[in-house]
Design a protein around this nucleic acid. Structure first.
Lengths: 238, 238
DNA sequence: AAGTGGTCTAGACCACATT
DNA sequence: ATGTGGTCTAGACCACTTG
């Protein structure tokens, strides 16, 4: 009578140890990890097992490996966000990052959609950030972010940087690991159309993003309305 | 004076041998590969090196590994297409595959967009398939496919199955390995709106797909107009 | 019981970056 | 010269599937 339960390979247990250290901030973004040999000796497994654990973390973009230099905790620098999280690219010209103008920062009780997405109990509060993003002063995206207030205390009192994911990591120890986006084509409401400088009822690409932390906890919801006259959402199917 | 050229690890050379066999159809979809040990002995490398080559092919969905059974050439069965290539999912209910009704099959000289996408010389011909796809008789997508005629001779004279990628592989030896999609929100032209049963100028999600074969050659362009009232395009950012 | 892929180890050597 | 990750090997054993 063998165990009907799943088998858990050693390298996954090692990986779990490493993820724990990332979640707890023992290893902070940008920092270099100990060498494979040191980690192997510390944990008491072979170097090959550590290697396999680190390879999986690298495949998930949680660490970056550099031959001859070492293994480093991944950062949310502009380049990474541009390629991993920002899928809207100009039809012509280089892939680049838009400017952001914050329209408002408010707090309030989460509505049904926010509670559902962020897995919040009733009456929990969220911070809402509304901003307009542009390429060369040409409005491109108007978006509303919703964040659980209990995770991001004090965020609303300071200036909002363009690169939010870097701020989440540095100030709140929250690392965005991946995201799920749901896309629809919609007709713009009059007020959004005004902000984007187009006619009401113009078609726009609506992107409903839920961003998840290292441990899988949902930490940010982002509802974006994008003009796609001169840009498109790029999706690679592999 | 060392070689300034790139270093090419052994397992990648082995992988290239395997890809060659897939491209040439020596190993056909669904077929089982020789065991790792046999391949290692045949090529004259260690089993670990063969393993690393096969692991990469599995990561690219070109082969499927089944513990205790063997390694198999990936097929374009319904499940794979549903998860890898069909990103439009119902807002409520299970992920599923729409029905297809072919509207027309024609041939003609490739236009500028088709030549650009498919990398065709001037005056080359394409086969165009236009079809309407529905969930439970509710129209969802109207799409036009463009295929290089020289790759798919005779395709236009036979009935068009719902699962085209399986047909490409079985009859023309063309395996679709991955695809690149560009999304925009557009207002429906009157004739497309009629087909989809909505008002003219309704917003729709336009998906411009370019599908690439194993060797990276572009082999299919597909322009889809999707209604997103009760469905959405799902994109996972990892 | 036999065959397959999956894991784990130990050691040698290579490529790359830094000192 | 040293230290890092990357490759390659050989062998042992484990988990899973099939006959």
């Amino acid at each position: 009578m063998a165990e009907p339960l799943g088998f858990r390979p050693l390298y996954r247990q090692v990986k779990a140890i490493f993820v724990r250290r990332l979640v707890d901030g023992v290893w902070a973004p940008g920092e270099g990890l100990p060498s494979e040999g040191q980690l192997a000796a510390e944990i008491g497994v072979s170097q090959g097992t550590v290697r396999k654990a680190l390879d999986e973390l690298a495949a998930e973009n949680l660490v970056v490996r550099k031959q001859g230099r070492g293994t480093f905790v991944a950062e949310h620098d502009e380049r990474r966000i541009l390629f991993q999280f920002f899928k809207l690219v100009p039809d012509q010209g280089e892939r680049r990052f838009p400017d952001s103008a914050v329209l408002s920062v408010t707090t309030g009780v989460a509505d049904a959609a926010e509670r559902e997405a962020l897995d919040l109990p009733a009456r929990d509060k969220v911070i809402r950030i509304r901003r307009l993003r542009s390429f060369d002063a040409a409005p491109l995206i108007v978006e509303t972010l919703s964040l659980p207030q209990r995770l991001f205390r004090g965020l609303e009192v300071d200036p909002i940087p363009n690169n939010l994911y870097s701020l989440y990591a540095a100030r709140y120890g929250v690392t965005i690991a991946h995201a799920r986006e749901r896309l629809k084509a919609v007709a713009l409401a009059p007020d959004d159309a005004v902000l984007l400088g187009v006619a009401a009822r113009s078609p726009a690409l609506q992107v409903d993003r839920l961003a998840l932390a290292l441990d899988g906890m949902p930490v940010e919801r982002r509802l974006s309305l994008c003009l796609t006259e001169e840009a498109h959402y790029l999706s690679d199917l592999r």
